[in-house]
Design a binder for these strands. Structure first.
Lengths: 353, 353
DNA sequence: ATTAGCACTCTCGCTCAATGAGTGCTAACA
DNA sequence: TGTTAGCACTCATTGAGCGAGAGTGCTAAT
């Protein structure tokens, strides 16, 4: 059963008002602020119907109405219009992303910062999942007679390295040979494939020295691959939520913060979400049933997919925030497009001791 | 003017009790719980004197006494005794650190985790500052005709790399030559020296190809060096403080969390602290005047110095916590001692896209 | 010097009533 | 038949008032 035009208007007014003021909204204030040409009494009747249909709730008998998750869902699907970003916000996004465009991880972190600054909510940004990343080459470099660096380079410029210390000295010859053999074996394979062991790990061991070296290197190789699969997660603006009326209770604030303390768990959750702009409201989330989560995806090199997101109470400016995220992810994807004449694909930092 | 033996006993009893229960402690409960052989009235008199001397405060007329920062300082300096860790805690520390000993950054993160789990406070751990790290060699590796990897290796096994994309193709010959030249120029120099420009950047440009390549690589080289200087900061157990009575007010909790949102600022603050176990109590801190901060240092390879720390309200178990930190840093230093026959010095992860 | 006794202070939790915002219903109206 | 005015009713919130309890500070006795 569909809602009448007037009911939609009233619902929209209630949502707008509630999102703005965070207080249950009464019939009288709707009638006054938004002139719908009807009296408070009429609005009351409609509100009563809307409540019966599940779009509104009542904190207690004599309070105004509050939109339900269902109302927000309707709003997001049908009612809201795309917003244009302010020139200031656009400029801020452009400037900040450009400033660090040649350092991948930093750009991602800036994206998270921008998101929380503009929305005044908690935000995050993740580097792309690299399951589908393919290996370009593998190189072993000498440091001293027992120490060497294992370096794995992906097709999209992704680089990981580990320092290994061996029990016995190695020869330069063995090192070069193993580098070559491993590259031949694994070039073009995805990280996932290699880790799932679908490829025979026997990279050949013609000579004695090579065989022992291989034995030392392979475990680290696999562990380093795993490490390459990890996405980096940057979170920003967690403390923004303290300014919101829904988090004045210590318990709610604690619950909220604890969500983000479990970074690994959180990362997995976010990776599992669909691509594009995705909004999940309140009960639609399996955890954080009183939050809304909005995620969006950006592309690197047209292939790898990373995510950014915003988390806040269900009461949020859906129209503005989704517009911002769309703009931001478009810009990010632009930054990370490979073939462009302007430099890109350059890279974060990875250090190790 | 020194405190009498009895005053010290009473002060200690008050601190112990307050640290345990977080409530102002009265003369009667001291007399009952700790038998000092004197009546509440006597204790009251002594407490009054202690208050006059600044060791105790009074939240209001008819409440018990609360130890002041000065009291905690006296306790830390003179009164407290080293605690032995429980066998369980020791085992936990050993196991957890050993499990990841060959992955540096993960070990550091585990240290922070352990610290917050055992103390039930907020904790952090930082990778060592690398100002004094010296360069071992520099290597440029080809990816495709315009893409290359710049790799900087430090003497202590520290590795950083960046992917560069050039506007013009390069030759393998130029690449090798530049690698060699740069290594010759910078080998043995500390990162700080190179960045401060005390070394002439002219690495020679005999041939045309080399000269243009150099022009593209040098800016990234310097930026990558800067990046190598950054320490990684891992924070754990931030939400633990929500369980403490001093943070039931949203405002205090917010202030606390905001401290840690400013990671760069926080890192600088921590780097500036002295080595060894350092305790700063309440007003002794320039920010966080109602917190106590305890930091301790571990060593890598006997040279580089990293920090771990605990942050909580001034009411904390100083004796236990300092003992735990001592034990933990000793263990960490042990893990990272270079020459040991057991593998170490192995390495974190650094990825980049 | 120590202690018992006692008046005094201040917080905390409770109840109670007033306030006010907002509803739901009924009856009048167009 | 849909809309509106009017009014009784509900319920959260606020602040005042009161009693209980914990703890001190002072005085006088030991």
């Amino acid at each position: 059963m569909d809602l009448s035009e007037r009911q939609l208007q009233i619902l929209q007014a209630i949502i707008t008002d509630y999102v703005e003021n965070a207080e249950p909204v009464g019939s009288r204030s709707i009638a006054k602020k938004y002139d719908l040409g009807v009296s408070p009494a009429t609005i009351r009747n409609e509100m009563s119907d809307l409540e019966e249909m599940g779009y509104l709730t009542h904190p207690h008998t004599s309070a105004g109405r509050v939109p339900s998750d269902k109302a927000y869902r309707l709003y997001v699907n049908d009612l809201m219009k795309k917003k244009n970003l302010s020139a200031k916000d656009k400029r801020m996004i452009n400037d900040r992303l450009m400033a660090s465009r040649d350092e991948f991880d930093r750009t991602i972190r800036h994206a998270a910062e921008l998101l929380s600054e503009i929305t005044h909510l908690a935000s995050f940004a993740m580097t792309p999942a690299t399951n589908e990343e393919t290996i370009s080459f593998i190189r072993l470099l000498p440091v001293d007679e027992r120490t060497l660096i294992l370096m794995i380079v992906g097709e999209s410029g992704n680089v990981t390295n580990t320092t290994l210390r061996l029990n016995v000295p190695y020869t330069q010859e063995a090192l070069d040979l193993l580098s070559k053999n491993m590259t031949v074996s694994y070039k073009g394979r995805t990280l996932d494939d290699v880790l799932k062991g679908e490829i025979i790990h026997d990279v050949g061991s013609d000579i004695e020295a090579l065989s022992t070296l291989k034995g030392s290197v392979m475990p680290s190789f696999l562990r380093t691959l795993e490490d390459m699969l990890n996405v980096n997660l940057y979170m920003e603006g967690m403390t923004n939520i303290f300014n919101l009326p829904e988090y004045t209770s210590i318990d709610r604030a604690r619950d909220f913060m604890e969500l983000f303390a479990r970074k690994d768990w959180f990362t997995q959750k976010m990776l599992a979400r669909d691509n594009g702009v995705v909004v999940t409201i309140g009960e639609e989330n399996d955890t954080m049933k009183d939050c809304t989560l909005i995620t969006a995806t950006y592309h690197v090199d047209g292939k790898l997919v990373g995510k950014i997101g915003v988390i806040g109470p269900t009461r949020m400016k859906y129209d503005e925030i989704t517009s911002i995220m769309e703009y931001l992810t478009n810009n990010l994807s632009e930054c990370f497009r490979l073939p462009g004449s302007t430099g890109d694909g350059n890279a974060g930092d990875k250090k190790q001791k």
